[in-house]
Nucleic acid binder design. Structure first.
Length: 577
RNA sequence: CGGGGCGUAGCGUAGUGGCUAGCGCGCCUGCUUUGGGAGCAGGAGAUCGGGAGUUCGAAUCUCCCCGCCCCGACCA
């Protein structure tokens, strides 16, 4: 039984000055975590118990699914990461260090290489597969900008699993088993989440899905169709295109449009001088970008911005993408800023990408590649031809759901897990093969599956807190019951002690506020801030032989006799999430 | 890396060149109080982020450095 009189804890009355988001403020105020450096935190007793509860739930579900736990060092030699090319690919985000002999080491940002090599060292037959192994490990990433307390740290704990299969069908099965285990895990953790389609990104591989916990302070944006349940990270959202009309358009016509370098100014001139009825959606924006030092053009409807994140996720093989700057225009004098059109892309030698909204057979108003001039009836397929179509325009609430065409909503969320069908990228790089039943060597196919363990503490805090403090789901709460004894007589303290002991004998964890000095108000505030699911107050009601039982989340209060308090609380807990 | 903000006691803060750096919370001692962050009295606690400079005099002005937060870029 934890006791407030001796617990290593100091709650704070004021929000810390360096915290912005609720989980960060409250975890610091309630004495769960303390900052050590940017993105690096220490756990105090209440925080560490909470963290371990989450870890325990995850471990139980992994084990129940038949996955086996292993453990790698956090500090690793350079060589495996050179073989997979990530020693250089990972860039400045990798924490590097040297030993006394000058040999290079790194602090593991993720462990695909090590798992692959471990399996390679032990197994060599298809009979050994499938295999799924996992670890719960501290990861290190020198993030350009750590933020939001424990949500994005430079040191954090991740549960990472890897599956090994002989073929794609096996991978599909292993992937599904992990997905199911994650669903069970997050249900127990009391998190609301959506499973959304995602881009595999830098990890490589094909299919990937994210578990996103909706939360206004989250870093990820995703779309959700409330009608059919389709959900996707905006990067992975597929654009629905109306069936193209086969309509014939008049010939391309160049218009005199002085001083119209922006879409708004162009639409104004079109409507006042060229017939009217135009909106930004009728115009075609030709956005110039530098992709790894190569100039590219991206076509999007004039009323939409290019979503760089989305574009990059969908442009394979591009590591650096940025908007054209003045000096880039200076190097490309044929491009007339504000009046660029796709008609001369071939002539200019620029690769032309188009958002799918710029469908073949559609006609647009766009730049005429001449100052103060635009062109209308510029038809895709007749007047220009994109080299490739790539999802690149910003996604908006109300856009059509790709599976049922209903308008989607857009929401923010914290990424709590990400699962990947990696395929053979790492197995090939590190030469992980087994013999199949014909005695032939086969490259193993892999999946990787991560849960942000320390991040989950913050995600749960974000979703469950209220104005007065934390309010934990039963499975993760540092204690299930917080008993507050009030008054100056010994009796409430004795009764509280007795109830606490009985609860603990039923494996219900207890934090007893046995402090004699602080007033009742102080103890109530602390209990609410700390966030145990049930608060028992032993005080005034004792005159009638009762104690007060409060449910933290609902604020519901009831009284119970001292004798029945323990069973009443046990029943309540079994009904709470 | 670009833009913005900040750094004074454990926490939150006041203090734009001049006396011993002020206040609230927390902490210690005593008394009083005890159902919503009590009261009184006394007390401890500060290299004012660091260094250099300007000045009779610097928390305060200048320069350099360090750290932290936010927005963006970036990010299994």
């Amino acid at each position: 039984m934890l006791r407030m009189s001796s617990l290593f804890l100091r709650t704070l009355r004021d929000d810390p000055a360096d915290a912005e988001v609720a989980s960060h403020k409250l975890l610091v105020r309630a004495g769960y975590i303390r900052r050590i450096a940017a993105g690096i935190y220490s756990w105090l007793p209440l925080g560490y118990i909470t963290y371990r509860n989450i870890e325990r739930v995850i471990r139980e579900e992994m084990d129940a699914a038949g996955f086996q736990e292993v453990h790698f060092p956090a500090m690793l030699p350079k060589e495996p990461y050179e073989e997979s090319n990530r020693w250089s690919e990972y860039g400045p985000e990798l924490f590097r260090l040297q030993d006394r002999k000058g040999a290079d080491y790194l602090l593991g940002p993720t462990h695909e290489e090590m798992f692959t090599l471990m399996v390679k060292g032990e197994y060599s037959s298809y009979k050994d597969l499938p295999l799924s192994i996992y670890q719960i490990q501290t990861k290190y990433r020198d993030e350009p900008r750590p933020r939001s307390g424990i949500i994005r740290g430079r040191e954090f704990v991740m549960k990472d699993s890897y599956s090994f299969d002989i073929d794609d069908a096996g991978l599909e099965l292993s992937y599904q088993k992990h997905r199911d285990a994650y669903v069970k895990t997050f249900k127990r953790l009391g998190l609301n989440y959506n499973i959304v389609s995602a881009m595999a990104g830098a990890m490589g591989g094909s299919k990937s899905e994210e578990f996103l916990a909706p939360c206004p302070t989250g870093e990820d944006t995703y779309v959700l169709c409330e009608k059919c349940g389709y959900a996707a990270n905006v990067e992975a959202m597929k654009t629905v295109i109306d069936t193209p009309t086969t309509k014939e358009f008049p010939a391309l016509e160049v218009l005199d449009t002085p001083n119209t370098p922006t879409i708004d100014s162009l639409v104004e001139v079109l409507n006042s001088q060229y017939g009217g009825g135009y909106t930004g959606a009728d115009t075609l924006k030709n956005v110039m970008l530098m992709a790894d030092d190569k100039a590219i053009a991206v076509l999007v409807p004039g009323d939409r911005e290019v979503d760089l994140k989305r574009l990059q996720a969908n442009l394979s093989g591009v590591t650096e993408l940025r908007i054209f700057e003045e000096e880039d225009f200076a190097k490309n004098p044929q491009l007339v800023k504000g009046y660029i059109g796709p008609q001369d892309a071939k002539k200019f030698g620029i690769i032309l990408y188009a958002d799918p909204r710029i469908a073949p057979g559609t006609a647009w108003v766009t730049g005429a590649n001449k100052k103060n001039s635009h062109a209308r009836n510029v038809v895709n397929g007749r007047d220009f031809t994109p080299d490739a179509y790539v999802e690149s325009a910003e996604v908006r609430a109300g856009d059509a759901c790709p599976s049922c065409k209903a308008p989607v909503i857009i929401d923010r969320a914290i990424e709590i897990a990400h699962i990947f069908q990696l395929g053979r990228k790492y197995a090939e790089a590190l030469n992980l093969t087994v013999l199949d039943q014909n005695g032939k060597s086969q490259v193993v196919t892999m999946g990787s599956y991560g849960i942000g363990v320390s991040r989950a503490v913050a995600a749960i805090a974000e979703q469950t807190h209220d104005e007065i403090g934390l309010s934990w789901p039963v499975e993760v709460a540092p204690v299930k019951v917080h008993i507050v004894a009030t008054g100056k007589e010994d009796k409430p303290f004795d009764v509280a002690e007795k109830i606490g002991t009985e609860l603990e004998s039923l494996d219900i964890t207890v934090l007893l506020d046995d402090r004699r000095d602080p007033s009742a108000g102080v103890k109530f505030k602390d209990a609410e801030l700390i966030g145990a699911p049930i608060i028992i107050v032993v005080g005034k009601a004792l005159e009638q032989g009762n104690v007060e039982i409060r449910i933290r989340k609902s604020g519901e209060k009831s009284e119970s006799t001292v004798e029945s308090a323990v069973s009443t609380v046990a029943t309540m807990l079994s009904k709470l999430v």
